[in-house]
Design a protein around this nucleic acid. Sequence first.
DNA 1: ACCTTATGTTGATGTGTAAAACATATAGCA
DNA 2: TGCTATATGTTTTACACATCAACATAAGGT
Lengths: 413, 413
Amino acid sequence: MATGSVVLSAMRGSNLDMVRRRNLSLVLGRVHELGAVSRARLTKETGLNRSTIAALVNELVLLEHVIETDPDQAHQQVGRPSPVIVPSDRTVAVVVHPEMDSVEIGLVALGGRVLRRVRFDTERVPSPREAVNIAAAVIDGMRGELDAFHTVGIGLVIPGLVRASNGVVAVAPHLGWRDEPVAEMLQDATGYRVAAANDASLGAIAESVRGVGRGVGQLVYLNGGASGIGGGIMSSGSPIGGASGFAGEIGHTLVRNDGDPCHCGSAGCLETEVARAPLLEALDLAPHESERLNDVLLEHLSHASADDPVRAIVNRQRKYLAVALGNVANILNPNLIVFGGFLQSLYAVDPVGLTAAVRARTMSGPDRDVTLAQAGLGASILMVGAAELVFADLIADPARSSGTPRASRTAAL
Amino acid sequence: MATGSVVLSAMRGSNLDMVRRRNLSLVLGRVHELGAVSRARLTKETGLNRSTIAALVNELVLLEHVIETDPDQAHQQVGRPSPVIVPSDRTVAVVVHPEMDSVEIGLVALGGRVLRRVRFDTERVPSPREAVNIAAAVIDGMRGELDAFHTVGIGLVIPGLVRASNGVVAVAPHLGWRDEPVAEMLQDATGYRVAAANDASLGAIAESVRGVGRGVGQLVYLNGGASGIGGGIMSSGSPIGGASGFAGEIGHTLVRNDGDPCHCGSAGCLETEVARAPLLEALDLAPHESERLNDVLLEHLSHASADDPVRAIVNRQRKYLAVALGNVANILNPNLIVFGGFLQSLYAVDPVGLTAAVRARTMSGPDRDVTLAQAGLGASILMVGAAELVFADLIADPARSSGTPRASRTAAL
DNA sequence: ACCTTATGTTGATGTGTAAAACATATAGCA
DNA sequence: TGCTATATGTTTTACACATCAACATAAGGT
């Protein structure tokens, strides 16, 4: 029955500007979430007056973040038709994603559409400096385009631990980065605001906003990659970052007391017991064929004997996965756990069985049952997630800086 | 760098009332948190204008939630002295705490002081109806007093799983309750708004607001009781409830693959491996002497041999406790983990050792180090926590219902 | 064609905070 | 003891924003 926050989060007082900002934010947020909304619907959902909505929408149109289009042709309602508001495709976020053998740069519109993707292959694992230089060069190449757009900022995908507050990469094992202020470097190199986050956290954001987790209050995303298992937590639409933005490291929870040593220094971690490499190996797949894993695995198991070695690996991994999922369900009580990467395969082998195994490990009660699901966004998940991270700032204050890049300022919060 | 919420939490638009409400809430929140604040300080901290603060404080004085007192005598500042605002001791919350052999009723003032505690001993484990009747009778006895006060509502402490949204007790193993709408029953019986929560969650709130966790952003509270181990999570001052308010069940995370079966249906749960009873038994203490556990244990170990059986039990329990804490630290990345109940003893035996063990299990990085601590509120922790749950609603909207009990309405949200 | 319904548009109104001008109370100092 | 500087409370005025009412507009229903 009680719901309020025990301690007030914000400390500053409100003035009339705040009202305007909040309402502008609310309207842009609805447009962004729904894709296309009539002014009438905005009026109903926000409870604001018709005239207020008109003023707010006009301001957002002037800011070029939304477009007001002609009323939907397919009316069946009496009364004056209401104009439809859609997010502008000219408000965009740049996404930068350094990997072991490449740096990928993307351009994503406010509506969620991925406009461009450029993959820059590297000879070797890029250093932070190299990754930033590559990204800056590609962005400079797009500069004409970007200046025509409203480029809100850059979303930086980090395969490792990032301090959310300042974008410093604490450790990215795959890339060999450690304590690198990559966000700041990229910001200085391009002039755009940079928001950085862990890849799994971005997956959680993406699935929560535009994937299978739309409208779900409490969501956990678990991604199985070549390097290990990462996780992200969404609570009431906001990412849970923890003290330093390192929350969600479910890959390093213990699932087996006498387990193998993990690179983190511990042993028996989820990601030492549940890994992609043994699965690929058992199925005679090369690492670069990992996209086929799901299909090949399901096909293989469909005619495999009971003592099939692949089946044995899968069953053992599923057993330990269920342990970790049970822990997560008990600690966080999520509505939904979403699987990405090779964990999708482990889930798809027997969705009902895994669900039952997890539920058996959680404190029961029929209405607390957690649901499991595969990720719904495919290859664009990180593009979408990183863009949403950037757009979150825009939506929080649509009138702030109207898109013009500002040279070399470090952080605004 | 980016911080905004990806999806907007509230859906309603803001008007001038909202601004007023928010600022009123902000000021009352500061007064509540700090205990005594000068108007000048409120001006500085909120960024609001002097005249605005004056108006807001005046309204809170009229609502009788705060008292404006004479300026502090010990000035050393030049300039006109600023009046000091303190929370009114006449704004109170009632706390109801059913246990196996009693129902405890308390009265807590907005400033955090426990004004009264009444313990009603029962012959046997009370049913929900009995607990409600006892509470209602005691509250009726205090009615004269309560009517003189501003009684904001009732905070209901539940030793079990409660749905935060409606106060339905899903399961309270100790009490044998299952799917009981206790909050609604108590509300109907007394006319006061009732907010119910799990005991460990209330401990987390209490330690976060008035205990060792003041000012800590991400906090986990772990309580070790006779029945098991419960946990509560605080994130940026708000409790994390999960989908149904069942989050924090750290007692049922797995710490030992071949562990003993747990009453939850699983096996090797934290609370089957780490329990109070074996400790009491080994030290020849009766259950009712559990308050002495900490002292007796430390005393015993101070002159115990290396192969002392108590030491063996303690070491084994500490090992499994470290596993669970490592999982929690990896998943939630808290700044602070607070121990209550007998877990305080396990921690106190060797604080540095346990801290090191937990840190060894978490993804490293010097700035992510989690801190451990004993609870700071002692026996009043649940009184304070439940009262804070009630006050949270008041602080969120100080001008709402001005304290008069309303007959038999179920829920307001 | 006319009415009903739903919505956009325009101008007047009310309300909360900010800003400015004034009042007051303290410390420091001669 | 009085003067000055400083900080803060108090009062008045101004401004910005949402609301409301009245009017305008565009559809469906008959």
